Simulated scan of single mutants.
Amino acid sequence: MPEVREVPFEHADSTMLRAAQKAELAARYGTHDSEPGVAPSAADVTAFFVAYEDGMPAGCGGLRLLSDDEAEIKRMYVTPAHRGTGISVAVLEAIEAFGRESGLTKLVLETGTLQPDAMRFYEREGYTRIPNFGAYVDSELSVCYAKAL
């Protein structure tokens, strides 16, 4: 069973996992900066979580507030060695629990068209496809989802 901890956005484990995610996305999309809009930072990420399996960082994800009752899930990532082990569900459950405890009523997120595994995951976890929002409106590579909490 993974252990999920809330950690600072700039924590060493968070930084390592986000760098691995960036490298994987660069390989999939052929660019080092595939994010439309402003990248998340320590200044605007409300909460960030890292999942550990046998003491090793295995996955992460965080929230950036969009309004008093809505937040965007940012930087969801699981290391290839830990995929299919429940890490992503554990991180998402921690994010959703934090959202509910914080009074949020809706979570939104963006993933990419070249990430069918992510799309299947979010749909399986109750997220519904929505029109692209915010910085993703004109992005042909973006697919957006939402879930009421």
Rank of each mutant, 00 (worst) to 15 (best):
L66G: 10
A94H: 14
E72Q: 15
L66Q: 15
L149A: 06
D69M: 01
A26Q: 13
Y136V: 02
D68H: 13
A39E: 15
P40M: 00
D138G: 15
V50S: 07
A58E: 01
P8R: 08
H11C: 04
R28M: 07
R120Q: 13
T111H: 09
E3Y: 01
R124M: 04
T31S: 15
L92D: 03
K147D: 09
K74E: 03
A90D: 08
Q115E: 14
L63F: 06
A23M: 01
V45Q: 10
V7H: 13
T85F: 04
F9C: 09
A58F: 11
Y136H: 13
A12H: 11
T15L: 09
Y77V: 02
R129P: 08
K22C: 00
G112A: 07
M1E: 14
A20R: 14
A39L: 13
V91A: 05
F133K: 02
L92S: 06
E101K: 14
S34Y: 12
V137G: 04
S102K: 14
G30D: 12
G61N: 06
L25A: 00
Q115S: 13
V91N: 09
Y136S: 11
G103R: 11
L92V: 02
D54F: 05
A97F: 04
G112T: 09
P2Y: 06
A94I: 08
A51P: 15
E53F: 05
R5H: 13
G126K: 06
R129M: 03
C144Y: 12
R129C: 01
S14C: 06
A23D: 13
N132H: 08
R28D: 00
E123P: 02
S139V: 00
G84E: 09
M56T: 15
E110H: 12
L66R: 15
G99A: 13
T31P: 08
V89S: 12
Y145S: 06
G30S: 01
G61C: 01
V91Y: 11
H11S: 14
V91H: 07
S14Y: 05
E123V: 11
A71M: 10
H32Y: 02
C60G: 07
D54L: 02
D44P: 09
G30V: 06
N132R: 14
V45I: 10
A58N: 09
A51W: 10
M56S: 14
V50L: 07
M76C: 13
L109S: 12
Y122M: 07
P80H: 04
F9M: 04
G30T: 06
F133N: 05
L107S: 14
D44K: 05
A43S: 12
Q21D: 05
A94T: 05
T105Q: 12
E123G: 12
T31C: 05
R129E: 11
L149E: 09
G134M: 03
S142W: 01
H32G: 14
T105G: 15
P80Y: 03
R75Q: 13
S14V: 02
D44R: 08
